[in-house]
Design a protein around this nucleic acid. Structure first.
Lengths: 192, 192, 192, 192
DNA sequence: TATGAATGAGGGTTCATTCAT
DNA sequence: GATGAATGAACCCTCATTCAT
């Protein structure tokens, strides 16, 4: 079906180029459909973008949720969340970018609002995991869970980015261990 | 002088829109000069962008360096580095974004290389502070200092971003304390 | 169809203005299509130019070739070649100019190379007629046929040009006779 | 003096690029004067162009005239005229182009008229030499002398052009001999 | 359901020219 | 006499969108 081909192509093209630099022409070409077909299936570029982002966020949420339903100790759960995100970020270099950072000037306000809402929902989802760790097991520090979620995503994104530019210096495993340490224990050795 | 007006305008426009969405027309209008004046002073858009980024990075490096020359305990130094970065990031909403995350497709390769070099130099600068904390005072954990620098910047950027979208829920001071805690102690209460 | 309209308009505009002075805007206006349509049909200005030149050269080659297939004495054939070229040059004032003399600085090298190749092919075609006259009938002097071809084209072009600026002083027939005499017998009455 | 430096630079730049493609910036740079100085010395681009063309034409006329005052047989005089022109055309590749063929759309009408007048004067000068050969020595055929002049210039220009693109195949001497033969005797061996 | 030719607003860039110094 | 910063019109080109088929 055309719609699916288009979405797949759109994920690729948006991920590689970012919103503004991605062109409907290239999406159509990559999806092997005519340009008109894009507009037959989606009202416009920004709506297509929204669909892509939505799908991406739902994917990672589902992926992560599946892991969390298994009866694991909290510490391990968070390890997995980090691993899942590294997978996603490394796999589709710019996707996290788009989702979390795309400068949005030039997208219609209503689409923009929906995107913000999606992002909010996603951070809430992460925050709820953290809250679980705060309540249930007294594992996590009593910081604001939403800020913590944002901070984790930021850390993961920027370290992935650094890693991708210096793949000779680190292994994927180094990255994962570093991220886990940094996120859970912070920079300081002790702190009274 | 035109050149300064242009740089100021460029900082604004690039910060608000990102590279690709920023237009030379708007920069000229904001700087209250004719479009041709941009090209009299800079060879083109990408070079103007480079100048802006360079200046931004040099600014924050200088600002931070000044603080670090004072004889403060390491812990306080890092507190100040965080505060300086929050200042910068909050002040110019998307500047950090541009510097650290701008999707670069479509910028000439040579300019791109210079930008990467600038970024690398900046992260090295931050890393050197961390290394100092590792060696001199045995304060910092023995993680890779460059990755740690990247991770700090990522944390600050994404929490700032979150804060700017939820200013009703937090004070600037909340943000600062959160960032310091998260960066230095991490998410977990204890970890033996 | 748009493509044909564009080519016709391009012939006119390039002929009247030369490559650098011709503007895509004017071609679009003359073709009564939107500017974007030019770029839908051709990759850019230089490619459009190439198409125009190619078509022009192929036209004159075909036109001439048709004449030469008829079983005429060589002398008459050359008369016809001259007449055909005068037709072309007088009809589309600057076309020959463009083809044979366009200063090419600023056209992409690959297009330029194709144009040179076209020109070379055309001169070879003329040269082959001359060679026929040298061999078969011992009519033509044993000069280098390619130079001779170039020289004929130059003579025709510059006399046409002169004629067009002094139409009151000569008839088309005067021009034709003059060209034939000059090309075939030269300036001197006798030469021992 | 600035004026002279400018004219020399202008000759170079116009010769290399043609009128429309030549830029005042480059002329100024080549003359090592500021851009404003061009406008201090000349009213504008087209006037500067006119000056250059004028000087070029006067140069070649003087150069040729000097040769013709010596008491040579007519045949030799014409040989020299050809040689002088080849020198000029080969030396300054596009100068003849500019003078004899520059498509002039976009130059102010009054300058254009002056240029045409210059060209006319020059062709008359050549024509007068031919006329001398017709009358005095009964050497030249009784063709229209102005057309003959135009035709000679056209031949020389286009053969020079061909030669410059195929320098491996011919020597300068080949070119000179060819031009002399073609111009004076034409293509045909005999013609009764 | 799908197409692709056509559009036109807007983007980056060039350059002859002006003018205060 | 000479400068060079500043201008703005005009250039080539891109691309999201429309619409007849």
């Amino acid at each position: 079906m055309s719609k699916d081909k288009i979405i797949q192509a759109a994920i690729e093209v948006f991920s590689e180029n970012g919103y503004h630099r991605a062109s409907m022409d290239e999406i159509a070409a990559r999806a092997q459909v005519a340009k008109g077909t894009l507009y037959y299936n989606f009202p416009g570029k920004s709506q297509l973008f929204k669909t892509v982002v939505k799908q991406g966020i739902e994917d990672i949420m589902q992926r992560t949720e599946a892991e969390l339903n298994s009866p694991l100790p909290m510490k391990e759960k968070i390890e997995r969340v980090i691993r899942d995100h590294l997978d996603l970020f490394l796999e589709s270099r710019h996707f996290s970018h788009i989702v979390f950072n795309e400068i949005s000037n030039g997208i219609e306000q209503d689409v923009l609002d929906e995107l913000k809402e999606l992002k909010r929902k996603y951070l809430s989802f992460l925050a709820s995991i953290i809250e679980e760790g705060q309540c249930e097991e007294n594992l996590c520090r009593a910081v604001d869970a939403n800020l913590a979620a944002a901070s984790i995503v930021g850390t993961l994104e920027s370290t992935c980015n650094y890693y991708l530019n210096h793949q000779d210096a680190y292994s994927r495993d180094d990255l994962e261990q570093f991220a886990f340490t940094m996120i859970t224990q912070g920079l300081f050795i002790s702190f009274e």
